[in-house]
Amino acid sequence: MEYLFFVVRRLLWSVVVLLGLSIVIFTIARVVPGDPARIALGPLAAQEQVDKLRTEMGLDAPLPVQYARYAGGLLQGDLGRSLLTQQSVNSDVRQTFPATLELVLATLILALAIGLPLGVLAGRYKDSLFDNLGRFVALFGVVTPSFFIALLLQLLAGYVLQILPVSGRLSPNLEFEANRTGLLLIDSLIAGRMDVFGDAVRHLILPTIALAAATIGQIARLTRSSMIDVSRKDYIEASRAFGIPNRITTFTYMLRPSFIPTLTVLGLEFASLLGNAFLVEMVFGWPGMASYGVRAIMQNDFNAVMGVVMVTGLFFVLINLVVDVLLGYVDPRIRIKGSQS
């Protein structure tokens, strides 16, 4: 019951954060000079046409009324219409979001698959080869712009070694419609198209590495330091004294509590991961939300920009919601702490 309260409270708070975000972004988008109606029609349109469109778009209403309309739409999941394409932002987002989601999920899986073991080994064998490797990876990942890693990978694996494709999501000669989940890897498996699956994996490798580089290091360092903290606890000493094998002590007694801080930070780190996804997508010509968002930004397409920002924010808030709910389940102390803050 207490757990249910925790989840509900956390859920409500997510809604508040998203509403706050929508106010901030709406204010920024609407307060700046520039008439959206004029942008939609172009500089050559007559003033009467612009005025007519302003009325149609509801732009002559006071700002709070405009916001209320926008927020009303948001609550029903309506992101409005793109000023330039006149298409609904929802359908644009629906088309581009799965590609971004696939990239981000692959990145999280890769970052955990490499970062966790690296952190465990670095923490278990302090100042060993693993520890120094982890240190190097972490520093390199933090100080190298993700678009630069992406370019280096493109240059090395794509052009010099010529082992992997450098752009896009799928080779142009393959006909395939990802129409179930939108995720190529899953849809191709469902359809039994192993050729498509293999091709999609090959396209996914470089962008995923470029995007994961920063996160791998973060996860490794965090896991390392919490492993070291936990290893000083009495119960670890006790389990050693009882003669429990090192393997079990390390992976069961030490790794599980160490995972909690890692997961918390991973949730917050997710924001920079999403931001970097924009850059990596641009380098690899990945047909995700980034290319859509950047185009919208360059053309001052406010509704599309706001749509992209809101969906990104929603994605981030959802991930953190999942992280918190998981943590609250794993570690009951967090539920109580959550209710105090």
Partner: peptide, 23 residues
């Protein structure tokens, strides 16, 4: 602090993109 939470809920790069573009 709730205001900072709102600002944390958005990737800095994406938000900076939106603001820079708007201005």
């Amino acid at each position: 602090m709730r205001l900072t939470d709102v600002f944390l809920a958005i990737p800095a790069l994406v938000m900076a993109l939106a603001i820079t573009a708007a201005l």
